[in-house]
Design a protein around this nucleic acid. Structure first.
Lengths: 145, 145
DNA sequence: CACGAATAGTTCGTATACGAATAATCAATA
DNA sequence: TATTGATTATTCGTATACGAACTATTCGTG
């Protein structure tokens, strides 16, 4: 194994660790409102763009369409969003948050991001660089295969 | 929404994107050998430490015990690893790769990491810094709640 | 030795997460 | 306008992924 492989392996494992930790933190907070991390992000996306199509929501969540389809169904079942055929293009669906969904989001919103503020002990420069490098990395990965 | 929240939101989404992309790349490669990303990492861990207990493997995979338990069962079903009670401590299990598991790993190994070498267009300094910042971030996250 | 606490795995219910296949609708053009 | 191709969403089968609750075993201490 050469240095390249070691670093890439470390990177993959680092990403797995970070996702695991963020998932854990979200889980605790979300549970209080009977929400999930993904549902929170979805309600946030719908607050920005209402209504959204399935594809738009999937992109906002960084998930595939098939995954998002099931998530929306469960959110509908919980009364958090509504789903309607778009009348101008019947292939599309319009997804909108319900009053209940908006209210739950508002309640949870501040708490959620506040929980993560310890990150700000890190210098802004470092965080900004992190985001930039990750974006560069993402572009490279998207170019593979 | 203040700057802090925006950056943290971006960070969460960035991590989601990166995991999605790495998953996609692994999927394509792993499929050829009827393996999964997690199975590859598991076989790699078992190549380093053979046998491993469930807990050791879970830590290497960055997964919880309950998740890892199911993964090991599926790998046993596929004849990739074996699972035996440890005779000196019957609570533990010893997980070892089979000849088939070792062989599949050897075949896939080089291809896998080679696929990701476009990452090396990025400077080593940048990558090293990325890993360091991610490690710092992970530590902060682990301290939350 | 007894027994309560700690350790190690498993099972369960639920929610992601994917690609492939399918269905429905719309758009382009012959 | 009829056919073909593109777009949009759903369904299916499988594999993560988790915490909570449970079982089995071992350890520590009176």
């Amino acid at each position: 194994m050469n240095n390249t492989e070691i670093e890439i392996k470390d990177l993959i494992l680092s990403l797995r660790s970070l996702r695991k930790e963020t998932r854990r933190i979200f889980y605790y907070q979300a549970n209080k409102q009977q929400l999930t991390e993904t549902w929170i992000i979805a309600l946030g996306a719908l607050a920005t763009k209402n209504p959204s199509s399935l594809e738009e929501l999937a992109n906002a969540l960084r998930l595939g369409n098939s995954t998002t389809s099931g998530i929306v169904d469960r959110m509908v079942a919980e009364g958090l969003v509504t789903k309607n055929r778009d009348q101008t293009n019947k292939r599309k669906i319009n997804i909108s948050p319900t009053a209940k969904g908006q209210q739950k989001y508002a309640v949870t919103y501040a708490d959620f991001w506040k929980k993560l503020t310890p990150i700000n002990d890190m210098s802004t420069t470092k965080l900004t660089e992190l985001l930039a490098t990750q974006a560069e990395l993402l572009k490279k990965l998207e170019g593979i295969k």
